[in-house]
């Protein structure tokens, strides 16, 4: 498997607090990589570094290198908007725009210059199908996105991210606010999506990581403790701390 994202010696500080300590790892293309670890271990911080969402937090300082498809993203010259088009994100809380279902999905493409009605219609349908939502909403695309269930909203957010045709999809604990059935649907969806997209997910739920991901990274106190194939990491972890965490002794 080729690496799409290469991270090298990444340090990240919030003011004086060092949240990430010399992280180095590769994220393989068209596979699911899961970040696990206790709260505050830095997994979300690393995820948000991949689309430079940490820029929003004042006092953040970042050192080291992140390359996506060979291109360094931690430079002042980086076109952050373009980066975020290529690296889509789905958040913990479903956050559809307060617009119609159709408008939510069409929003991104329209921004990037697709205005023909027919093309947009096609794109909306394709994205909603990819997000396994089309059959549930196709008859009321004009309704408010705020009126559908939380699980549907989250899949709508996935469709919205997919509509701009990203290479990478970041999922920041995207099922933690959902019920078990919606969670299952999204997990199934992720299995489908990994054929076309590189997916990086942060999860609190170790079982989810075990079920869904190809690679798992275990974080502790801002460091990568262990990084391996999901099967290997869960069956024969090489580090004692990983073993303690996955067997539920802490975290």
């Amino acid at each position: 498997m080729t690496a799409l994202i290469e991270i090298e010696n990444l340090d990240l500080y919030y003011g004086d607090f060092q949240a990430l300590k010399s992280i180095s790892m590769d994220v393989p293309e068209k596979a699911v990589t899961a970040f696990i670890g206790p709260s505050g271990c830095g997994k979300s911080t690393l995820l948000r570094s991949l689309n430079r969402m940490n820029d929003l937090i004042a006092g953040t300082r970042i050192e080291g290198s992140i390359k996506i498809a060979g291109e360094e993203i931690n430079t002042s010259g980086m076109d952050v908007e373009h980066l975020r088009k290529r690296v889509g994100m789905v958040f913990q809380q479903p956050n559809p725009f307060p617009k119609s279902i159709y408008e939510n999905v069409a929003y991104g493409p329209r921004l990037y210059g697709i205005n023909q009605r027919k093309k947009l219609d096609e794109l909306v349908e394709k994205s909603l199908r990819s997000a396994a939502l089309w059959d549930e909403v196709k008859d009321h695309l004009k309704r408010s996105a705020l009126g559908i269930s939380g699980g549907q909203q989250q899949r709508l957010c996935i469709a919205r991210a997919l509509a701009v045709n990203p290479d990478v999809l970041l999922m920041d604990e995207s099922t933690s606010a959902l019920d078990p059935i919606s969670t299952l649907k999204i997990e199934e969806l992720v299995q489908e999506l990994k054929n076309e997209y590189t997916i990086v997910m942060v999860t609190h739920n170790m079982h989810q990581a075990a079920r869904v991901s190809n690679q798992t990274v275990f974080f502790l106190n801002g460091e990568v403790v262990e990084y391996a194939d999901t099967e290997t990491l869960f069956s024969t972890p090489s580090d004692r701390r990983t073993e303690d965490y996955i067997s539920g002794r802490f975290g």
């Binding site: 958040f91 956050n95 307060p98 991104g108």
Partner: peptide, 27 residues
């Protein structure tokens, strides 16, 4: 305006001003 919606706009690749104008102001 919920912070989540602002982040949704930015994460989609909207510029700051575009996010303010087309996501936050309507809300």
């Amino acid at each position: 305006v919920p912070r989540e919606q602002k982040e949704a706009g930015l994460a989609l690749g909207l510029s700051k001003w575009k996010t303010i104008r087309s996501i936050m102001l309507p809300v």
